[in-house]
Each structure stands twice: as C-alpha cells, then as structure tokens.
Design a protein around this nucleic acid. Structure first.
Lengths: 242, 242
DNA sequence: CGTAAAATTGACTGACTTCAAATTCGGTGG
DNA sequence: CCACCGAATTTGAAGTCAGTCAATTTTACG
C-alpha cells in the first residue's frame, strides 16, 4: 500500500487513537499528488471547493484580504495538516490558502473524506477535533492581535511555531528555522513589516532570542514564554483525546 | 414531545436539510434547562467539559483573557446557537462563555450529542458545518481587528450583528437593539471603550447610523456596508448547504 | 556577477491610548 | 412619583506605540 498519507494518520492519532483498520482506511483514501512553489494557491477565496488537501511537505498559510489590500494571515500550516478541511465542507472558500515554501500536497475528493468520516466515527471525530483545534488557535490569534503589544505578539508567534515544529520533529522549540518572511510575520501579527523587523531586533536586544536571517535560537525558553504570554493549552496537544 | 430544542432544528436546517426523523431525533435529545443572568458563566476557561449548551433565549459571548487582564471577545451568540460545541468536544475549555443578557440555555450531555452526530450523518454534518462557520467568522474577526481602522471595525461588527439578528427575526438589519455595552463592543473590536464610544459618534456624525443608547438605526445600509468593508459571504448563510 | 526580493535604517506623523472627571441612564426602594 | 446609586456613557487633554514614507543594505539565486 502507498504510504503517502501516513502524515494524516499521525495527525489524527494526536487527537484520537485509531485502530489498525481505521489507519488502513485513511491510507486507502484516493488522492492526487501535487507540488507547489511558494505563493502557489491551494485554494482561492471565493472559488467552489471539491477537494480536501493534505500537506505532505513544506509549509502553507491561510489568508484573507481587506478591501484596501491589507492582508491577514490566519494560520500557518505544517506537514500533516489538513489544509483544507475548513474550506472544503463549506460551499465556497471564504479565504485563500497558499504555499509558504515549496510544498507537496495530496488532493482528496471531498466526498471520500465525508464518507470515511461517517463510516468510521473514530476518524470522523478526529477530523472534527482537528477543525476545532484550528478554531481554538484562531481565537488565540485574535487575542494576540487585539490585546497584546508588538513584542508580546511576535514572541507569542515564535513560541507557537517553535513548539509545533518540535512536535513534528522539524526542529526544537529552542532552535528552529522560521518558515516565513518578515512580511508574512507582520501579516500574521497585525503590524507593519517595518515594525515586525524592529520588534525582532528588540527581542534579540533583550537577550530573549538570537537569530541569523531565518534561524531562531531561543536563549531561555521559559523567559520567552513569559514575555510572550504563551500558554500552550490552546493547541490541545495533550488533552487526553475526546 | 417537548419543543424546547426547536431552535436547534432551525439552526441545523440553515446548514442542511433534515428529514422529519432527523428533526425528531434532535428534539428528543436529553437536556436540562437553566436561566442565566448577565455575566453568568456557561463554561469557564480551563474547566473540563461535559455538556453542550444550546442558547434558547438571550445573548452570550466567548472571551479569552490576556495575562495583563486585557479581554478579547471572539464571538457573539444568539438564539439557536450551540454555544458550546467548540469547547465540549475538546477535553478542556480554552476560553470562557458568558451570558451577555438574561438568557435561557439547554444543557445537553456531550455523549448524546456525539452519538447522535454519528448515528445520523445529516445531523453530524450540520453540526460540523456549524463549527466551521464559527471558524470562518473568527477568521473574519481576525482580519477586522488586524487590518481595519476603528471606524471600519465598528461598522463591520454592526453590519454582522444586524444581519444575524434579521436572520433570526429579532430585528432588521437597519433597525435593531445592540445586545452589548460599549465596553464589550470595544473588546470585540480590539480597542478601548473610550475610542469605541468616539467611533460610534463618528459613525453618527457621518450620517451612517442614528442611535439612542442601545438602539441602532442604519440610515443607508449599502453605504454602511461599503464603509464597513462588509462582505457577508463569510457567514455562509446561503451557501446551498454541503 | 547581476538582479530582484528581503531585511534594515532613519525621520516624521498620527491613530489610538491613557488618565481623569463629568454626565446620563436604568433600576430600586422610600 | 421621586430620590438615590452604581453602571454605562460621554467629554477633555496629553502621551505613545506603531504606522508611513523614503532610502539603503543584505541576501538568495540563476
């Protein structure tokens, strides 16, 4: 059997224990592989949705645009994330998803996903759970943008990304490669790229992080966590499942 | 049969057509009624979750607190909203839900909800869809707070609330009673109550709205909509279902 | 190398916040 | 019916965090 969809099984297993049968059923989903370059669209705001996309490699992000061109990045996605469960069940995409880096995805027909979800409740619950965790992260970002100052906002995002990369063995929380530009960092924290740049410098000046271009080294995790007002509960990484 | 849960059927029917059997199954869910005063908690951040709560009457809101006491309101809920599908499937509540006005709720055991969802896929899909629409609204709010100025932010929230009230026959989009204080309005739009107050005055000064205390009259809906950068697609009110 | 994108720097501006006080509203009891 | 009180709203003045504009430097990459 092809094991391309193994990251999906790993993701679901974070939320709910799956039997061997369930795991096999996930891996047996029909799919089409595709490779994306940075900036390529996984789905475009307003278009009809027919597929769910699993991110196999690389990074992606969700974004919405304001009338004046202002951009809001509402999520960053990593290997194993089902980048498009959010949009694909709704009739129309209310936002866009784009590749952040070079990325590989698997496109799965929408009906195959929903059918599987209801044939196998464990899988269905894991999917549902997954969308709820995304919503939880979105609420935390809303708090981040609306009630924290620039330094805290950037620090918070760095904590979240570091921790999530560590969970995927793509780095450690104290040393990782930031997969986004300062422009994107700014759009994810609701500030200008100029100020995002100055805030990164301020974090370094205070000794909380060291950095070279995209590499972030956290000098003292618990100190950064405090400065970031970062409480990882909202990621629901160790909730004990459903 | 008791018809207390009829608002839930109406809500689900927005997302997916339900058979008579399905409708009966929803109404037959076990529940306990409770009445809440303004400020009473439906669920408290951090606590374990055992029930889903349906809002039968009145208004409620979701909130999260920052370390420094700053509050972010991440959703406003109305009659028929399942206020706690978000929290109740996750092990721990990552945010609080409180009554905004005097309110009546029905508490439904979590297992009854999930069991029904998988016994009857139409109902399950409607529930899932409901949580996805909430996530969509959250992303729009994130854009609102992070990339729009104060005037546009407040106008946008007024448009959303007006439209949702109209959908529930609790007013019209051009004339409705705002169910929240200016303090709460400020926490939902990421600004200070002082500035929220001045922004309301500015909206009135520009002739976009008239108001007496909590009553909002929209003088020219399409003008307000333009000023608000309000595109109602994110509410998914007429997607044609799944 | 050469080029475009990304990062960085500097000076200036302004939208929103902060702090402090006054006024109005809504409900309660005399 | 009116006096009272806390909550909500409103007003004013001064301060600041972050935005804007414009230019320079560094980096990635063919």
């Amino acid at each position: 059997m092809a094991t391309d969809l193994a990251p999906m099984v790993r993701k679901f297993s974070l939320w709910k224990e799956l039997s061997a049968d369930d795991q096999a059923a996930v891996m047996a989903l029909p799919y089409q592989l595709a490779t994306l370059d940075p900036g390529d669209y996984v789905i475009r705001q307003g278009s009809a949705t027919t597929h769910s996309c699993l991110l196999l490699q690389g990074f992606a992000f969700r974004q919405k645009l304001a009338q004046d061109g202002g951009r809001s990045i509402s999520a960053v996605h990593m290997r194993g994330d089902i980048v498009d469960l959010q949009n694909s069940l709704l009739g129309h995409a209310d936002h866009s998803v784009q590749a952040l880096t070079r990325a590989q995805i698997a496109r799965i027909p929408r009906e195959a996903v929903t059918t599987l979800a209801f044939e196998r409740p464990s899988i269905g619950l894991a999917m549902w759970y997954d969308t709820l965790v995304e919503a939880s992260i979105c609420r935390e970002w809303l708090l981040n943008v609306s009630r924290r100052d620039a330094l805290t906002r950037i620090a918070h995002l760095l904590c979240e990304i570091g921790l999530r990369l560590e969970t995927l063995n793509l780095g450690t929380r104290s040393n990782f490669e930031l997969p986004m530009t300062q422009d994107q960092l700014a759009d994810a924290t609701g500030m200008t790229p100029i100020h995002a740049n100055r805030t990164l410098q301020e974090l370094a000046a205070r000794g909380l992080i060291s950095r070279t271009m995209r590499t972030i080294t956290v000098n003292d995790w618990s100190k950064l966590q405090r400065a970031a007002d970062f409480e990882p509960g909202y990621l629901h990484l160790a909730d004990g499942g459903i």
